[in-house]
């Protein structure tokens, strides 16, 4: 899903950058508060970043005959809240843009919106919806993080479609073309990401109960503050 350096027209690049900034601010505020109130969760925050680091470095083969990578952003979104992943995603994307020439600085905003905002928020939303509907545990985690991973690539296809409308089919036609490249390839990889996230969650439920309870209390409290 990395749009290469210079491959989005300046206006589009700036607009997606501007769209990502509020989430970065919200995310860093939330991280600051979580670490202040529950400093013992900082290792788990590091582990969430590490998960995204590994997964976005692995270019896996897909049944479409091309390769792509998962994003690993769903785990942190479910644990710490989606806005936190804007910050962690920015770290991953900066590493790749500066050291690997994968993605880029000019396209950082767009890539961040896809990977650090859209994916995590979809994962978080699907998880909330499914638990509210009574689905429990692994199924909700799997569906949420797999769909979040897929959403990232759908957003990338939309970004490219808007920037490069097809001379005949317009933006819609173009979006479909880019979807055929990204979304189909990503379906099996999204499943893989969902399964891997469930595995990590299984471990955390057994060994990191205290941190999970802290984070649950934290998000309940901050939700109350918002509605109050």
């Amino acid at each position: 899903m990395h749009i290469m350096e210079g491959f989005l027209p300046p206006l589009h690049a700036a607009a997606w950058g501007a769209a990502s900034v509020p989430f970065l601010i919200m995310g860093s505020r939330r991280i600051k508060r979580i670490l202040k109130e529950h400093p013992e969760t900082r290792l788990l925050l590091g582990a969430s970043a590490a998960f995204s680091f590994v997964l976005s470095a692995l270019k896996l083969p897909s049944v479409t005959g091309s390769s792509s990578h998962p994003t690993g952003t769903g785990l942190g979104a479910l644990l710490f809240g989606p806005s936190v992943m804007a910050v962690l995603g920015a770290i991953v994307l900066l590493f790749q843009a500066l050291l690997l020439a994968h993605g880029g600085l000019s396209t950082l905003g767009a890539n961040l919106f896809a990977m650090g905002v859209a994916g995590p928020y979809v994962a978080y939303g699907v998880h909330r919806l499914m638990t509210r509907l009574g689905s429990k545990g692994s199924i909700a985690i799997f569906s949420a993080t797999a769909l979040g991973c897929l959403a990232t690539y759908v957003v990338t296809a939309i970004q490219l479609g808007l920037a490069f409308p097809d001379p005949v089919g317009g933006s819609a036609g173009s979006i479909l073309t880019f979807l055929s490249i990204f979304a189909l390839t990503q379906i099996p990889l999204a499943i893989t990401e969902g399964v891997l996230t469930v595995m990590v969650m299984n471990f955390l439920l057994e060994y990191s109960r205290d941190e999970l309870n802290d984070l649950k209390r934290f998000s309940k409290r901050s939700k109350r503050e918002v509605t109050a």
Binding site: M1, H2, I3, M4, K59, P61, S62, G65, S66, S67, S68, H102, T156, L160, F178, I181, F182, T185, Q186
Partner: peptide, 8 residues
Amino acid sequence: FAGADGQA
């Protein structure tokens, strides 16, 4: 199994 990024 070429990269999807490159194809895009």
